[in-house]
Design a protein around this nucleic acid. Structure first.
Length: 587
RNA sequence: GCGCCCGUAGCUCAGCUGGAUAGAGUACUGCCCUCCGAAGGCAGGGGUCGCAGGUUCGAAUCCUGCCGGGCGCGCCA
């Protein structure tokens, strides 16, 4: 990166300043290099002189001159300038800019990615929706954000493991299996009363039909045997939870473990399979689907609880085992083993975190919906309770997305089962638009998702705007072939010094920003920066395209321009890929 | 009540570890296709950065309080 090169120059200059006694040797200030807002101020600027003013006891502009005097010579820097209160501005040489074009063509899809740093392993856990139904549009944002975040982290040198935690254990699974069984009984012709807190969706019937087509009436029991003697459901003035628990007990009584496994297995296979397909079609991939049931079987949960106990963070109260989280920054203490002897989901979470560290990851990142923010304190407390550095656990919250159609909010409610699924959204607006729109805004910002805009094939649509730039470039190369010419990038490279139009310089500058954008996006966990950048890059390209003809007679200029345009194309492809969007050659 | 997030142009939003004159898109107005894709470009107006203090060479950015909006506070997940 050019930026790193100039930072290195500053570090050298700083060393000389200390050696020459201009500033005390013990000041510990890292040179900060930032992009200028306007080209009038050059390419990069540093506030180093202002930062040194106090420790050196000298006016900033005087220090700025001292810094400049000690900068090593560089072929990349044309000149420097002192500006304003004491900024040092760096103007790049023309060859530094054209060098970027050359780099892009050489590095291709690797342009913008950093070499992997040693010992930089990180897990990113995202989506992790319970396999009790199809993914809905709320999960979509977490999926898009988690996937793009993983991509930028990987591009900036992290060894990233993408993980989905599958909650295939516990009471919710019992309720799921039960819901399918009741629908199954219904399909068999029994009169049933579906529990208020059961899973209502149509997909439950689908799974029930699958079981019935394989096992026939094998798990059929009469409505009387099932429902007689149960406490009233919520609708009938009773306790809905107690009712559903009673039904679960009745189910295992009648069918036994064998039957439960059939319904549970069919449910998880169907739903998890559907989720996996859905995410794959959404371009969201995982390295690991981590099963909670297996975590429990492995004894990891008990192991984690034991560790907390050894560290003196557990106590018994009301027949349950509590984790003294309140002493580690959480609001209150949390139960890890319930009165009935079963461990809580929180206990599993602790064990899973421990498992991640045991597998050698230096950091575990979690992408949560904003409604889960209450978990952060207790997970951090758990990390401390295990004797680990809580900094190893990083939670990224994704705020809600609200869909808009015809300028109005699309109302949804999970309770009634009336929500829009991720699959429906993809079918309506397409994967590219969905992926782009989801990460277009900062993850900690609420998102207004305009369905009509996402579908529109106009310049208002930011995805089409970027993709159109790519398609236009591809069209230029098709036009070239139709004119019986071919692109000679060697000639182009030799003639890059002829690219001196202001628009050409601006486009090169934009390309040069890409690696810096990837680095910032990773550091700030903000892939939306890439989306904004792509819009800027497309703008620079469209402006260039409208102002200049690429396919000119002069062979040198033509090939140089094609090199620049091809480099632009590559950066567009790379950036779109980070966001999970395609780069169509024609639209 | 306590805790977390947010408040920037009419609307949707950027603004990086504090920096130079606060930026895009959209909407509105007027231009540009005998020319590689007009799904494009050029030009223009539009702001008490929620409010009030504080920190300092410098605050949209950091701190405190208040106002407004969202979310969370189960031996549920």
């Amino acid at each position: 990166m050019l930026k790193n090169h100039i930072e290195e120059l500053l570090i050298q200059s700083l060393l000389h300043l200390k050696r020459d006694g201009i500033i005390p040797g013990d000041v510990d200030i890292q040179p900060q290099l930032e992009r200028t807002r306007s080209v009038d101020h050059g390419e990069y600027a540093t506030n180093l002189a202002m930062a040194l003013a106090k420790p050196a006891g000298k006016p900033p502009r005087e220090l700025a001159q001292a810094i400049i005097d000690r900068l090593p010579n560089s072929r990349q820097v044309e000149r420097t300038e002192i500006a304003g209160p004491g900024f040092v501005n760096f103007f790049l040489n023309h060859c530094a800019l054209t060098g970027v074009v050359r780099d892009v063509l050489r590095q291709g899809e690797d342009f913008g990615t950093q070499r992997q740093l040693a010992d930089n392993r990180v897990t990113v856990e995202y989506v992790s929706a319970n396999p009790t139904g199809p993914l809905h549009v709320g999960h979509g944002r977490g999926a898009a954000y988690g996937a793009s975040l993983s991509n930028v982290l990987q591009a900036s040198g992290f060894d990233v493991q993408r993980e989905y935690y599958v909650n295939d254990n516990g009471r919710q699974m019992d309720i799921l299996a039960l819901s399918v069984w009741i629908r199954y009984l219904e399909l068999c012709g029994e009169r049933v009363s579906f529990p208020e807190n059961g899973y209502q969706g149509e997909y439950i019937y689908d799974i029930a039909r699958t079981v019935r087509s394989e096992d026939g009436d094998k798990w059929r029991f009469s409505g009387h045997d099932v429902f007689d003697g149960l406490p009233p459901d919520g609708e009938a003035g009773g306790d809905a939870e107690a009712y559903i628990d009673a039904l679960i007990n009745k189910a295992s009584e009648l069918m036994g473990h064998e039957g439960y496994v059939v319904f549970f297995g069919a449910s998880i296979d169907a739903i998890l399979g559907d989720i996996k397909d859905d995410l794959r079609e959404f371009g969201v991939e995982f390295d690991t689907w981590f099963s909670e049931a297996q975590l429990e079987e492995s004894g990891a949960i008990e192991h984690a609880i034991e560790r907390l106990r050894e560290n003196g963070h557990l106590y018994e109260k009301d027949g349950a085992t509590w984790f003294r989280a309140s002493e580690l920054g959480d609001e209150k203490d949390r139960v890890v083993v319930r009165e009935n002897g079963r461990t809580t989901y929180f206990a599993s979470d602790i064990a899973y975190f421990m498992n991640k560290l045991e597998r050698g990851f230096g950091k575990a990142m979690y992408v949560f919906g904003a409604d889960h923010h209450g978990y952060i304190a207790r997970l951090k407390a758990a990390a401390m309770g295990l004797g680990e550095d809580p900094e190893k656990l990083e939670v990224l919250l994704v705020q809600f997305a609200v869909l808009f159609r015809d300028g109005k909010k699309v109302q949804m409610s999970t309770r009634s089962g009336k929500f829009i699924t991720l699959r429906e959204l993809r079918e309506e607006v397409g994967t590219d638009a969905a992926r782009f729109f989801y990460v277009m805004r900062s993850h900690d910002q609420h998102l207004d998702f305009d369905l009509d805009l996402a579908k529109s094939r106009t310049n208002e649509n930011p995805v089409y705007y970027v993709q159109y730039a790519h398609a236009r470039i591809c069209s230029v190369f098709r036009q070239l072939e139709q004119n019986d010419m071919r692109h000679n990038s060697a000639i182009g490279e030799a003639a890059l010094d002829q690219l001196t139009e202001p628009r050409e310089l601006a486009l090169m500058r934009a390309i040069n920003r890409y690696p810096e954008i990837i680095e910032s996006a990773a550091r700030l966990r903000s892939p939306h920066l890439v989306a904004h950048y792509l819009g800027d890059l497309a703008t620079e390209f469209h402006g260039y395209y409208n102002a200049h003809q690429f396919l000119v007679d002069d062979e040198n200029v033509r090939n140089a321009r094609l090199n620049l345009v091809d480099a632009t194309r590559i950066v567009l492809v790379n950036g779109l890929a980070v966001l999970g969007c395609s780069a169509p050659e024609e639209m």
